[in-house]
């Protein structure tokens, strides 16, 4: 028997009272156990979609099932499968960390006696245990983000929705959050995240859906998207500053000057870098470093969303 998808979205539309059509018939299936990124420029409809899934935004039309339960038939049950980490902090500023997490367990019907050890484990895993008696407004930005994750996981949801979970978080903390989320996904939790950090999506997710102007314009595995990338841009750092004479010698190659000591090499799908790099070496330019101009996913993203 086929496994029930974690999320099934069929032709979901959202028109706000202002007349803005935020979603224009989005359909998406997220298999159970998947780690999926929802990418898109600002205003594309990502947060609206997350809001509808979490029950904070009413859809105008369409169908949504969570773990096989339609939100139109039994919304409360469907919500019980979901944990939500919103983009903006949304807890009581004066409430203590432990109370925020344990009360949330109560809202999901978990007795206090059971919630306390769960909260302890989660707060320890997310390095917040020492702060358990601290009011939430006394926490740093990174701690607040981790608190929202702990709160979202207290009822052990099957699906975790994260809306920009690492926004404003420093690199070290971001990496540790990635490790935590990977482990969570390995343990079977389906994760859907929206992010502006395409590197994050590339590092964490197996699947990506790109949403633009309220519609999903591409969906597939990260690997497939990268394979079909029409080209990549490499940045080649040289030992010496690049002179005009040397650029003349590189004419006919997909190369342009990026800055004093960097060349930008545009490779089309199927091209290898060997010829270009050999040519650069042959005219006497020493190469100290080769890097992608951005994340490769970023190139896919820009290619698909360019106007």
């Amino acid at each position: 028997m086929a496994k029930i998808p974690a999320i099934e979205i069929g032709e979901v539309k959202k028109v706000y009272k202002t007349g803005v059509e935020a979603l224009k018939g989005v359909s998406l299936t997220v298999p159970a156990g998947e780690f999926m990124a929802l990418l898109g420029p600002n205003g594309a409809g990502k947060s609206t979609l997350i809001g509808i899934l979490s029950g904070l935004v009413n859809k105008t039309s369409g169908t949504i099932s969570v773990n096989g339960v339609s939100i139109d038939v039994d919304h409360d049950k469907a919500k019980s499968f979901i944990g939500v980490v919103p983009q903006e902090f949304n807890f009581n500023w004066f409430e203590k960390v432990i109370d925020i997490v344990v009360n949330q367990a109560g809202y999901y019907g978990i007795p206090r006696k059971e919630a306390l050890p769960r909260a302890e484990q989660l707060l320890k895993d997310l390095e917040l245990w020492d702060k358990r008696f601290t009011a939430s407004n006394q926490l740093s930005g990174g701690m607040k983000r981790r608190l929202m994750i702990a709160r979202a996981l207290i009822h052990e949801p099957k699906v975790l929705l994260l809306d920009e979970p690492t926004a404003g978080v420093d690199v070290e903390l971001r990496r540790s959050m990635w490790t935590f989320l990977r482990e969570l996904n390995n343990d079977g939790t389906t994760i859907i995240l929206t992010t502006h950090y395409l590197e994050e999506a590339e590092q964490l997710c197996r699947r990506v859906a790109i949403i633009d102007q309220g519609a999903i314009i591409r969906e597939g595995t990260v690997k497939d998207l990268l394979t079909n990338l029409s080209g990549v841009t490499l940045l080649v750092d040289t030992v010496e500053p690049i002179r005009q004479a040397e650029l003349q010698l590189l004419r006919g190659y997909p190369i342009k000057k990026h800055d004093e000591t960097t060349l930008e090499v545009r490779l089309q799908h199927g091209d290898t870098a060997n010829d270009v790099l050999r040519k650069i070496s042959s005219i006497g330019l020493g190469i100290v470093n080769i890097r992608n101009s951005g994340s490769r996913l970023e190139e896919v993203f820009l290619e698909l969303t360019k106007k």
């Binding site: 029950g55 049950k77 019980s80 949304n90 009581n92 500023w93 009360n103 949330q104 809202y107």
Partner: peptide, 18 residues
Amino acid sequence: FGAKMQRYLEELLVSPLP
């Protein structure tokens, strides 16, 4: 209103509580 303004009412709205 405090819960609505500080948005922690969302803690209840996302939960399965009727």
